[in-house]
Design a protein around this nucleic acid. Structure first.
Lengths: 392, 392
DNA sequence: TGCATTTCGTTAGACGGTCTATCAAAAAGA
DNA sequence: TCTTTTTGATAGACCGTCTAACGAAATGCA
């Protein structure tokens, strides 16, 4: 049954609007928030009063514009209002970030992971406790968001991670019970796309695709102003788009998947097959920059494969922007020419013409900050998912 | 600036909910509408009263359930409330349908088209006038929706139709001026997808992809409960997804596009190359059913190509359902086995497992009925696009 | 210094929603 | 005929936003 839409829903929506406007514009005044959100100043006043009463917002002695008229009182999202926790959970390392509700980073923690999903979850739990303790006294955790390189369903169950051997684990429920705070879990790349939208390079972009390489290759779709998850929650599996018919075998059981050519391990394996034993992607990129023809040709192929898959996305989804993140950003400048050639060959001209291609500025924190974004969205929308309200 | 959310927006939303509930359940009572929409019966009463006052809804002597308690009064969307017009505009033929606001078909008109876009628009205008006149006396046209096989931007400008030589025509503005009624224009396949959602086989499906073949091959994406148009309005161009590297040349300037293999003209051309001169797709399908090995092999290839493209869509968007419409439905049963084999080879198993594959039940009226869907959406949402209200 | 001007933020009141509670109307069943 | 049951309408509570007016606190200028 569709949720009821009543006055309370309106208020909840307007609170969220004001909150995000203030998050993106710290030290804004009430009048400015009204202009930013399009709300009447009386409404803004009511909303801000509520946020002040709830302790989510504080008045500060921010810098005052020396203007005519009554001076504004600057507002910020209260640092004391609580913590958000974001994490990236991988077999090798677990990376945890804590922030204020505004998204200001407080602590970084990085610990070794585990190839066993149960052990990894326990380690994550311990790491979060440590990070929270280091973030300050008496701060309550308002939400925990985790990105995992796996197929995650809409209820936060880990369904399958072909490369890791993980499957069928109700990890959200498990962590929520252990942590005693709301937990939001999603695929790592979807989380990173959320981070790109809230904190990164896509702040004003309604339609973009995010491509990333870690152990595999992932895709996050931000369509029509919101993260798109698909019917089961599995949307964006660009790593398993076929780019070479009957190509290299993939951990998923198919052949010729994109990630058998452009993931870090795949690139290293292909380099080794061609007589270049290199330790990591940075070394591969360096070799190409030094003019090694074999490695250069290999990265050209990587760009070409990636370009084919991106062309499919462009033709199908017509994004305004494509973001390269994760390990893809390491070698991006080397393979970008080949990628662009592939786009020219495979993407429709009117759709390609206005496409912007950028490298993610978030670096290794993209996924943990995506966890922050998930937790922030969850905290603000609770108890009702506001985005759903006005769909027919 | 984001639109304001106030009481009026809530009412508009609830009116739309009640309207659609009544459209899908003619002769429903007020109490039933309340149950269907989740609204309180007091609210339902207020909304229905407004709809009755506006003349959009009527009380009828519908069939009464012989039950205990006060008998219900049946409601229907008033046939006298106005007309919707839907059309498919193509160079060869123009097909026009008129319906009540509920979507009940009143008139069909089919007239020859024109390869000149200006002439075609004039013919459409005349045809609409004729269809409206035939639909009854004194009915005002509430909206006109048109599907065109071309790239249409979000403002209803025709940008490009590679196969037809049409480009850069402000056809929406032109028709609106000529007709004096609100006009909504979109790509024909997007319109058909809307029809599938409102009147066809996807009534309760939030995430589906629609594939169709006419002169070219088109795709419509219904994602997260709404039609997805992309940044410029060009999303869904599955016909120009590359399925064969360096394959057959396409009217778009690229090579190996899906539609160079599976559009009707492409299939006929390939059959001719292999020594089978056949007049249309029905003849091709008949030959395959009669056991012609050349034609059977050709349709197997068609299924394979289509399956590759659909696999990309499944991996990227994880739809719950894929609908085959237009000419694709003519030969569907013949190439479906090959299509399924391709899905098995190219789509991730967890995403493919729950995918349903169905043939469109709407037939040649899919696009005109899509025009009806566009017009209905436009009429109900006017003056503010309600779906946008609660996006942050 | 004194006063007009400008901008900020609050508040009262109008207005319009939904929701709860109540009630009359109209049928079936006993 | 009376009870039961369901429908649909309505009063009043409650909660939103919006308009309009007002006090507060600065600048600009005589």
């Amino acid at each position: 049954m569709a949720p009821r839409v009543n006055s309370a829903a309106i208020r909840r929506l307007n609170v969220i609007r004001v909150f995000h406007a203030l998050r993106e514009n710290p030290n804004a005044s009430q009048a400015e928030l009204g202009r930013l959100t399009g709300l009447d100043k009386a409404t803004t006043s009511a909303v801000v009063t509520q946020l002040l009463d709830d302790g989510l917002v504080e008045r500060t002695e921010g810098p005052r514009a020396r203007r005519i008229g009554r001076p504004e009182t600057a507002l910020v999202i209260a640092p004391s209002a609580g913590l958000l926790v974001g994490a990236r959970l991988e077999p090798r390392t677990i990376r945890i970030v804590t922030t204020t509700l505004a998204g200001t980073v407080l602590e970084h923690v990085q610990i070794p992971g585990s190839t066993d999903i149960g052990t990894a979850a326990d380690l994550l739990h311990q790491g979060i406790d440590r990070a929270v303790a280091a973030s300050g006294e008496g701060l309550t955790v308002r939400g925990v968001g985790v990105g995992i390189p796996a197929l995650m369903d809409r209820e936060g169950r880990l369904v399958l991670a072909p490369n890791l051997g993980w499957r069928d684990t109700p990890i959200r429920a498990r962590l929520e019970a252990a942590l005693g705070a709301p937990v939001y879990i999603d695929n790592d790349t979807k989380a990173a796309a959320m981070a790109e939208r809230l904190f990164g390079v896509c702040r004003d972009v309604e339609d973009f695709v995010y491509l990333t390489g870690h152990s595999g290759v992932g895709g996050g779709l931000f369509l029509g102003g919101r993260l798109y998850r698909g019917a089961q929650g599995f949307a964006g599996e660009v790593g398993h788009v076929t780019v070479v018919p009957d190509g290299r075998p993939c951990g998923c059981g198919k052949r010729g998947c994109l990630e058998t050519y452009v993931s870090e391990s795949a690139i290293l394996a292909q380099a080794a097959e061609r007589g270049r034993d290199l330790p990591d992607l940075a070394a591969v990129t360096a070799a190409a920059r030094d003019g090694d023809p074999v490695v250069t040709a290999l990265l050209d192929e990587v760009g070409e494969r990636l370009g084919v898959a991106l062309s499919h996305m462009v033709n199908l989804m017509n994004p305004a922007l494509a973001v390269l993140g994760g390990n893809l950003s390491v070698a991006a400048d080397v393979f970008l020419p080949a990628l662009n050639r592939a786009l020219e060959r495979h993407a429709l001209e009117p759709l390609r013409r206005d496409l912007r291609l950028v490298v993610s500025p978030l670096g290794p924190d993209a996924v943990p900050m995506g966890g922050i974004a998930l937790a922030m969205e969850g905290f603000l929308s609770a108890p009702m998912p506001v985005e759903e309200l006005l769909r027919r």
